[in-house]
């Protein structure tokens, strides 16, 4: 699975931090699986540069001036869509938002036809959110510009994983996750955030644990045994106490109410009691343990309100990191795709 498969040859772009050995060949960003560690670092370095634009320390960039960025969202999302939109605007892109509740089938137009329409309307970068795993790969097969996956089904959410890493690396003493115990807690089975984070966090050398009820961990024991990318092991447990003990980071995931109707969970109450992230549970974590959540949160279910709003919480920092990280991703894919602005 590589975002680079359909890619055009890399073109040297105007990315400020590009250095030999870590060129960015990816015309699309569909998942984090295709990224090497140097490429991940390139995103983080570029995002640091972009953060200075966001903070006002540097002037707005014109990197994407005249380039059409279309946000195509088949699932409702405020935070991710606004984050991408803001990022594109900081780069002077022309932003178009297309939101649709139903799937392409319900609309009666195929995803490829929708893509061709948007392409004809000037989209050069397609930021795409879709309920079906793998949907952006179909679009990337034919789209002439760059595709950025903003979440596909339960498969991947690469910019979320990259902004999580950006946030963590900033806060981690020494700036490295190597050997740090990072726990992803919750509905792992249905989580694109968990999957994309497994690639980046193991690439960063973290000791990754995933924890949740057995019904929501189905299949992960086998993946853990095989290793991410066939080599990078992680740990699977249903024991929240064991997971949190000595943890340096705990990332709680949102629990959807549909899981009860599907018979995967007895009740939110029981879930909160066994898997909810509370200050009490965090007593056994490593000193200074950080807490994350990709949002939106069900406070009192997967995460206690005092944890979410407490000093350990990186939740608002995660949201803030989203803009510079997405600016970095947009500028890197545009350079790799050789997309020009203006009348082009």
């Amino acid at each position: 699975m590589s975002g680079a498969i359909a890619g055009a040859p890399a073109t040297a772009g105007s990315v400020p931090t590009e250095a030999p050995g870590r060129a960015w060949p990816h015309r699309h960003l569909l998942d984090t699986d295709a990224l090497t560690w140097p490429q991940i670092q390139l995103v983080l370095d570029t995002a640091r540069h972009m953060a200075e634009i966001v903070s006002g320390a540097r002037p707005r960039s014109t990197a994407l001036r005249g380039i059409g960025v279309t946000n195509l969202f088949y699932e409702a999302s405020t935070r991710t869509r606004v984050s991408f939109e803001t990022a594109a605007k900081y780069l002077s892109a022309d932003v178009v938002n297309v939101s649709t509740g139903g799937s392409s089938i319900e609309k009666g137009e195929s995803l490829l036809d929708t893509m061709r329409t948007l392409e004809a309307l000037g989209a050069k970068v397609l930021v795409m959110r879709h309920a079906t795993s793998g949907a952006p790969y179909l679009v990337a097969r034919e789209f002439r510009g760059a595709v950025v996956n903003a979440g596909d089904g339960r498969h991947a959410h690469p910019t979320q994983a990259l902004l999580d890493l950006f946030t963590l690396v900033r806060r981690m003493p020494g700036g490295s996750l190597r050997g740090r115990k990072v726990v992803i807690l919750g509905d792992i089975l249905h989580s694109r955030v968990a999957r994309s984070n497994l690639w980046t966090l193991t690439a960063a050398g973290a000791d990754v644990w995933v924890c949740g009820p057995a019904t929501l961990l189905r299949g992960f024991e086998a993946w853990a045994a095989a290793g991410v990318g066939g080599e990078r092991r992680f740990t699977v447990t249903t024991d929240t106490a064991a997971a949190v003990r000595d943890a340096d980071v705990v990332m709680a995931l949102r629990i959807q109410k549909e899981r009860m109707a599907a018979g995967l969970l007895p009740s939110l109450h029981e879930y909160a009691a066994r898997f909810g992230l509370t200050e009490e549970r965090l007593m056994t974590a490593a000193e200074g343990c950080l807490v994350m959540h990709p949002g939106p949160m069900n406070e009192g279910v997967e995460i206690a309100a005092d944890v979410a709003g407490g000093p350990r919480s990186l939740v608002t920092e995660q949201v803030a990191s989203g803009v510079p990280v997405r600016m970095a991703v947009l500028s890197l894919v545009v350079a790799a795709a050789g997309i020009g602005g203006g009348a082009a």
Partner: peptide, 16 residues
């Protein structure tokens, strides 16, 4: 269900 329940479905996020 989308793909055989196993490593591929788990990694690709396809329903087993």
């Amino acid at each position: 269900a989308e793909a055989n329940e196993g490593l591929v479905a788990t990694v690709l996020g396809l329903k087993g």
